[in-house]
């Protein structure tokens, strides 16, 4: 399981992808997106109906990359201390001792994040940004790598606290799994329980290998032409009248990192326009704040921009 050369690492990556695809059927494009997000060091927002395989996907990723997995169902009565942990007075040591909460995991599945109160949401998002939590004035490092996969139900909106734009910006990717196609769904119906399949999944890459892969992606070559195109894609969101708030510079940096990760997954040494195109919608869709009279959603407008913006 230990890989050293970049060649071995990328080969193992392909094997990891194949294994996840065996667990999550018929979603190879989305699995690719999840892996890109993971390699780019970003957090993932899954916007989907219940029961389409969000948890299965998160489990499969955690198992494949040998990540310490934890899952929290967000509700409106959940308190920040329920997530990050509490300091409790320990009579034996005559001092406060920190009991880490479920956030101390390498892959945290935050289910229905929009059901939590803003207070809890901001605690989670702070942790996502800083890679640490602060309790009673003491900072605690989160385990590395630390990846949050948050889910949102786009249909049921009552009793939810929609995430503010500034916090959505902390998610590198937003993707939607959707229903599987006919073939995959029939296979799903005929096969055994997914939990058993996940249990069979063996780690293909170690957490340290993931860190090494991230470093490889980071240094991938992006030519001036590719940067020009990335800039054109970002600038287009700021000029379009259907969009009230376009992509931030942070989103731009994320776009470039995701494109590099995509290129790495495709085993290229450099970023090509297709890499940027492949990750653009996932980077942009949750970040675009649309004008009140705009028709369509962020994803459809992002796809339109992709078709309009010429490659320089």
């Amino acid at each position: 399981m230990d890989h050293h050369t970049p060649e071995q690492l990328t080969q193992a990556l392909a094997a990891a992808e194949a294994q996840i695809n065996q667990v999550v059927l018929g979603k190879s494009a989305e699995v690719r997106q999840v892996l890109v997000c993971l390699l780019a060091g970003g957090h993932l927002l899954l916007e989907d109906l219940p029961g389409v395989g969000k948890t299965t996907l998160a489990h499969a990723v955690a198992a494949t990359f040998d990540l310490d997995f934890s899952r929290v169902q967000f509700t409106s009565d959940l308190l920040p201390s329920d997530l990050v942990g509490v300091s409790i007075y320990d009579q034996a040591t005559a001092g406060f001792r920190f009991h880490p909460g479920p956030i101390f995991a390498q892959l945290l599945l935050a289910d229905e994040i929009n059901r939590a109160t803003p207070k809890l949401q901001s605690a989670l998002l702070e942790a996502m940004a800083e890679q640490q939590v602060t309790v009673d004035g003491t900072s605690h490092r989160l385990p590395q790598p630390f990846v949050v996969v948050a889910t949102q139900n786009p249909v049921e909106q009552s009793g939810t606290f929609p995430l503010p734009e500034s916090q959505l910006d902390r998610f590198l990717f937003s993707i939607s799994l959707g229903y599987p196609d006919e073939r995959a769904e029939k296979a799903l119906l005929g096969a055994s329980d997914r939990r058993a399949v996940i249990a069979e999944a063996r780690p293909v890459l170690s957490a340290s290998a993931l860190t090494a892969l991230r470093a490889l992606a980071e240094v991938l070559h992006a030519s001036p032409a590719a940067i020009d195109y990335a800039y054109a894609l970002i600038a287009a969101t700021r000029k379009d009248r259907r969009i009230r708030i376009g992509l931030s510079p942070r989103a731009g940096i994320g776009l470039m990192r995701a494109a590099k990760a995509h290129a790495l997954l495709a085993r290229r040494q450099h970023v090509v326009p297709e890499d940027l195109q492949a990750v653009y919608v996932a980077v942009a869709r949750h970040r675009l704040v649309l004008a009140s009279d705009a028709s369509g959603d962020g994803a459809s407008i992002a796809r339109e921009l992709l078709a309009q913006v010429p490659i320089p």
């Binding site: 326009p273 078709a307 913006v309 490659i311």
Partner: peptide
Amino acid sequence: TPDSEGARS
């Protein structure tokens, strides 16, 4: 040959 199509595509 749409302008938004890369060489690879």
